[in-house]
Amino acid sequence: MKVKQISIFIENKSGRLAEVTRLLGEKGVNIQALSLADTSDFGILRLLVDNTDVALETLKEGGFTVNKTEVVAVEVPDQPGGLCEILQVLDKTEVNVEYMYAFVARNVGNAVIIFRFDEIDSAIETLQKEGVNLLTREQLYGL
């Protein structure tokens, strides 16, 4: 139920984000979703890609500092109140969310929320117990 994500350290100056996408594009890596957290000095770029290993290797070769992390992809009904239900579940179970971001996955047809939890295993257990639909990597990429 865990999905691999890569995080890239990016200095806050022009052209760095373009450089990441250029490197990945050249290797035929497709970006499924991204989120960027930034300060005035630097940013942390998180990517879901169809080929994590190739992306990781490519970016490292390109001189970037890259980490692989595990996140949870939650399917959320694409309708009013859909996200609220999920958040209420999290709220009452004391699961800590480090960050989250959302996108609409073509092959899923619904909204997908990516969650980064501080304790991923217990978070997955809790969410499943509450009947939340977690997506596998295969489902996410339509493999």
């Binding site: 995080s7 350290f9 998180r46 500092t65 980490n67 980064r116």
Partner: peptide, 13 residues
């Protein structure tokens, strides 16, 4: 920044 001191969470960073 190297991998040892790069955290994916902004809070930790």
């Amino acid at each position: 920044v190297n991998e040892n001191i790069f955290f994916d969470e902004m809070r930790k960073q």
